[in-house]
């Protein structure tokens, strides 16, 4: 049986950003959905629009420079969060949808204890006594496996190491048992060994609580380990989406292919930390894009059509979709 609504459905999300030289479209017609308890991976280089997608879901896009496209809809349990007023949105943030950020060193307020930063979220969303919130903070710190949680709760962020801090932000994010956790490059700023520990933690939490996770990374291998489904963004567009296994084994978009070539065999994470520069060229600045495929300037298969017209999404199987003229045949076969 299928649910009446997916937990989260992002529909035709577009974002225009005002920059010094005018307005550019940094995200263009991205759609995807997330079922409860699922883990979705979002891959792309910096500038591909993955963080903006996350911030759009949280309704935390930089104001007033970012504007959402008119057709954009973000449905949480069937309700369009883009239509919610700020009060209702605040009830959603941190309680239904949480987010953790790339750099744990700066994500915690240095002037408050870690416990206070967990407890204030609990108290704000659920009310209750200070003591109860504090007790929850201890529980959360234990849940993210911080040693001596009773003492750690009274510590200040500067007394924590990087990995500990990221655990603490995860504890904050999960304190109100949200249905969705958005993790934006949660391990990029951490040591390799610590990275693995954080991923183990996220995996376990997923199993225990059934929280759906959107895992954002520039690193395909980290995504591959934790997710069942992957979405690849490039230049503000979704270029490929499908089950993780299928994408790893049989990438259809030249960009995904290139990404995978840089990650031979998906071995240890240490080996491919900086794999992306090996794709010739760099991500085009959004304002440099014409109407064509954003990857065309770097693509070895690029034809004239690729540079002028954006290919539509083609379905290659039940769940596998790709936006590339190479698969036009499949496209027509579906329709």
């Amino acid at each position: 049986m299928r649910e009446p609504h997916p937990l989260l459905a992002v529909d035709d999300l577009s974002i225009d950003m005002t920059v010094a030289r005018g307005t550019v479209r940094i995200l263009d017609g991205v759609s995807f959905s997330l079922a409860s308890g699922e883990t979705l991976g979002v891959v792309g280089e910096s500038g591909s629009g993955k963080t903006m997608t996350a911030l759009a879901i949280m309704r935390l896009l930089p104001q007033p420079s970012a504007r959402l496209g008119a057709e954009s809809r973000i449905l949480f349990s069937g309700k369009n969060v883009l239509k919610l007023d700020e009060r209702a949105m605040r009830r959603l943030r941190g309680r239904e949808i949480s987010m953790i950020f790339q750099d744990p060193m700066t994500a915690l307020n240095p002037l408050f204890t870690v416990g206070e930063q967990i407890a204030e979220t609990v108290r704000w969303h659920e009310g209750g006594t200070r003591a109860a919130a504090q007790a929850r903070a201890v529980d959360m710190l234990r849940a993210v496996r911080i040693p001596h949680p009773e003492r750690a709760v009274r510590s200040y962020p500067h007394q924590f190491s990087g990995g500990m801090r990221q655990r603490a932000t995860i504890a904050i994010a999960l304190a109100c048992r949200p249905k969705i956790l958005i993790a934006d490059e949660p391990t990029t700023a951490l040591d390799v060994t610590v990275q693995a520990q954080i991923f183990d933690l996220l995996e376990d939490i997923q199993e225990e609580t059934g929280t759906a996770i959107i895992l954002i990374s520039h690193n395909l291998s980290t995504i591959a380990r934790l997710t069942r489904r992957i979405m690849v963004l490039y230049g503000g567009r979704k270029v490929e989406e499908g089950p993780t296994r299928e994408i790893i084994r049989n990438p259809r978009h030249p960009y995904t292919e290139a990404l995978l070539r840089c990650v031979p065999g998906l071995r240890s994470e240490a080996e491919h930390d900086a794999e992306l520069p090996e794709i010739p060229g760099t991500v085009p600045a959004p304002e440099e894009l014409g109407g064509g495929c954003p990857f065309a300037p770097r693509c070895s298969h690029a034809a004239a059509r690729c540079r002028s017209t954006m290919p539509p999404a083609a379905a290659l199987g039940e769940k596998h979709k790709v936006a590339c003229w190479l698969h036009e045949a499949a496209q027509s076969a579906v329709t």
Binding site: R90, R91, R93, N109, W124, H125, I172, A173
Partner: peptide, 20 residues
Amino acid sequence: DYIRMARAKGLPEWLILYKH
């Protein structure tokens, strides 16, 4: 970042401003 984090936690603007 920690102000963005506080917003992501759903705290109201006055609390972010005057506490954090």
